[in-house]
Amino acid sequence: MTSAQRFLLNVPDLWDQVDLSGEELARTRARALSMTDDPRQRMRINDMFRQGREISRAARRQGALLATGTATVYDEGLFMAYGMVFAVTTPRGQELTLPVLSAQLGISSATGVAPKDRVISSAEVPHVGTVARVTGTETTRLTADVDVKLLTMHTMMPVPGQTGDFLVVTMASPNLPLRNEVYDLFDAITSTFRFLTDDGEPVEVAPTG
């Protein structure tokens, strides 16, 4: 099997590979604030943008291979979401199986415990095969004084030809009322993931069964 050297993840056109803290974010924040005069709604919008900046900074600190996201104003309101890819390597002398790795994901950083709605399952990614997935509503500690609840989806992609190594695709959104729609979107984005060779060709998935 040809070894994987790179990866590809297709994201919607309105998502940017940026740190969500620059001029575009400021313009989107201004548009969102202009849509309401309700002080509580304006406070919530400001909180969401503050959370967005902290999430992107946290992704950089944790060594994300890819960080992408969106802050988009629709007629129905503001939608924010983030996508990140991290490399996970098996510690020398230890076995990191999919069940073990799954059990370590989806833990709320603010509390150290798994959310009540956490689900560990399998998923079919067309260009990868059967993978482990963890979903749940996590309370994430961004700074000493900022906790945020996020709908999260972590999907583990085994690296072809490198036993025990994974790329973890993490998707997150603070739009909790849109739970079903958000998870459908995250699944669609994650399903585009594929490993590539140095020449940019897809790495063939070994048949199973």
Score class of each variant (00 low, 15 high):
residue 83 G to H: 01
residue 149 K to H: 11
residue 110 A to G: 07
residue 87 A to Q: 13
residue 140 T to M: 12
residue 78 L to I: 08
residue 53 R to V: 09
residue 167 L to I: 03
residue 24 E to K: 15
residue 174 P to E: 10
residue 98 L to M: 13
residue 92 R to A: 13
residue 94 Q to W: 00
residue 127 H to W: 07
residue 97 T to I: 02
residue 138 E to N: 13
residue 147 D to P: 05
residue 145 D to E: 14
residue 27 R to T: 09
residue 12 P to D: 08
residue 28 T to L: 06
residue 128 V to R: 08
residue 136 G to L: 06
residue 180 N to H: 11
residue 82 Y to S: 09
residue 129 G to D: 08
residue 9 L to A: 07
residue 166 F to R: 02
residue 116 K to H: 12
residue 151 L to E: 08
residue 208 T to F: 04
residue 47 D to Q: 14
residue 107 I to S: 06
residue 148 V to G: 08
residue 118 R to K: 13
residue 18 V to N: 13
residue 119 V to G: 01
residue 27 R to V: 12
residue 137 T to W: 04
residue 83 G to A: 12
residue 58 A to D: 12
residue 10 N to Y: 06
residue 72 T to G: 00
residue 118 R to A: 10
residue 127 H to M: 11
residue 79 F to H: 11
residue 181 E to T: 11
residue 72 T to A: 10
residue 99 P to F: 02
residue 47 D to T: 11
residue 167 L to N: 05
residue 49 F to R: 08
residue 1 M to V: 14
residue 12 P to T: 02
residue 100 V to K: 15
residue 72 T to M: 08
residue 158 P to W: 05
residue 130 T to P: 00
residue 77 G to F: 03
residue 125 V to K: 00
residue 203 V to S: 05
residue 77 G to Y: 03
residue 162 Q to E: 15
residue 186 F to D: 02
residue 64 A to H: 10
residue 93 G to C: 03
residue 106 G to M: 00
residue 112 G to L: 01
residue 154 H to T: 06
residue 169 V to I: 14
residue 55 I to K: 02
residue 208 T to A: 14
